[in-house]
Computed example of a mutant assay.
Amino acid sequence: MAEAQAAPPVTARTGPGDVECDLCSEEKLKAVVSCPVCLTSFCEVHVQPRYQPALQKHKLVKATQLQEKICFQHGRLLEMFCYNDQKCICVLCTTEDHNGHNTVFATVARPEKQKLLLEKRKKFHRRIQEREIAMKKLTKAVVSYKRSAQEALEHSDRIFTELLQSIERRRSEVKELIRAQEEAAVSRAEEILKELEREIEELRRGDAEMEELSYDQDHVHFIQSFQALQTSPVSKASLSITLSQHPSFDALKESLIALKRDETCQIGKILAVG
């Protein structure tokens, strides 16, 4: 029986930000590993020979942009770290631009940088925790403020509803009072007007009698008739009575204006407190 052939490795085309395989001649496939010694990246197909024991001399790493790890001046791998300039350099750089500087292999500098990275992460974690606590407090404050505002709205609606109802009752009472005073004053004035009309009629009638008597040529009859004239009618209404003597509404209007001014002032104080 013929042995089953091994399934071909899964390959993938490159996308934005992916590393391309350096050995693909036609369509560039996505690289899965890179060799920092050979400065080459391999896809799933071309990396297979590298797994053979005879070829496993170099350590493969996750696929990365190798040009970022190459010294642009010497074309060598960046495997050293310069403390003076705080940058990665190649071995040849240590004998030229960085001659006399404190340089070590990147593998030696890594633990120190790893420690600094850990400290930075701790600071970030502390800041995250502080911000999360602040967010929780602020969120709680917002909820409390909204609840307080809603309670204030409900309370103000209730109070203003009661005030409006009270004002409406007072308005009706004031209207009834004004109407009652108006009816009483007008009724009294109408009585006085009628009395004055009767008195005027009597006076005119008496004046007509006296005018007729004044033409009488009989002296004795004139004197006798004059003695018999009735005295002037006594009016029940005083001539000085006018509507101005009845209760005035000016005081009431002033009281209402003062009430309005006081209510406006009280609302202003409430808004100022808010």
Score class of each variant (00 low, 15 high):
Thr161Cys: 10
His74Arg: 06
Leu92Pro: 07
Thr161Leu: 08
Glu176Ala: 10
Leu163Cys: 11
Lys136Glu: 10
Glu112His: 09
Val174Glu: 14
Leu138Glu: 09
Ser148Leu: 11
Lys175Ala: 08
Thr94Asp: 04
Leu177Ala: 13
Thr95Leu: 13
Ala149Lys: 10
Gln165Val: 07
Asn102Ser: 11
Thr95Ala: 12
Leu138Ser: 10
Cys93Met: 03
Phe72His: 03
Cys82Arg: 00
Leu78Phe: 05
Arg127Lys: 14
Arg126Gln: 09
Asn102Arg: 05
Glu119Val: 01
Gln114Ser: 14
His155Trp: 09
Arg121Pro: 00
Met135Tyr: 11
Phe105Asp: 14
Leu77Gln: 04
Gln114Thr: 04
Ala184Ser: 09
Ser172Gln: 13
Glu112Cys: 02
Arg131Phe: 07
Leu138Trp: 12
Lys120Phe: 04
Phe160Thr: 15
Lys115Leu: 09
Glu191Asn: 05
Glu119Thr: 05
Arg147His: 13
Lys115Asn: 11
Ala152Glu: 14
Glu132Ala: 03
Pro111Arg: 11
Ala134Leu: 06
Lys120Tyr: 07
Cys82Gly: 03
Glu183Trp: 01
Arg169His: 12
Glu191Val: 15
Thr161Asp: 07
Arg188Gly: 00
Asp157Met: 13
Arg121Trp: 07
Lys123Glu: 13
Ala106Gly: 08
Asn99Tyr: 13
Val186His: 01
Ile192Ala: 00
Cys93Phe: 03
Leu78Thr: 03
Lys175Val: 04
Thr139Arg: 15
Thr107Glu: 09
Thr139Trp: 05
Ile159Leu: 03
Phe124Gly: 05
Ser144His: 09
Cys71Pro: 05
Gln181Asn: 08
Gly100Ser: 09
Ala185Gln: 01
Leu78Pro: 11
Cys82Val: 02
His125Cys: 10
Glu112Arg: 03
Cys82Gln: 03
Lys123Asn: 09
Lys175Asn: 10
Glu151Ala: 11
Arg127Met: 09
Val104Trp: 04
Gly75Tyr: 02
Tyr83Phe: 08
Thr95Asn: 07
Asp157Tyr: 10
Ile159Cys: 01
Ala106Val: 15
Leu138His: 09
Ser166Pro: 06
Gly100Glu: 11
Lys120Gly: 05
Leu177Lys: 07
Leu193Lys: 12
Glu183Tyr: 02
Ile178Val: 07
Gly100Trp: 06
Val91Leu: 06
Glu162Trp: 04
Lys146His: 14
Ser172Lys: 15
Thr107Asn: 09
Glu182Phe: 00
Leu116Tyr: 14
Lys87His: 10
His98Trp: 05
Ala152Trp: 15
Glu130Leu: 10
Lys113Phe: 15
Ile159His: 00
Ala149Glu: 13
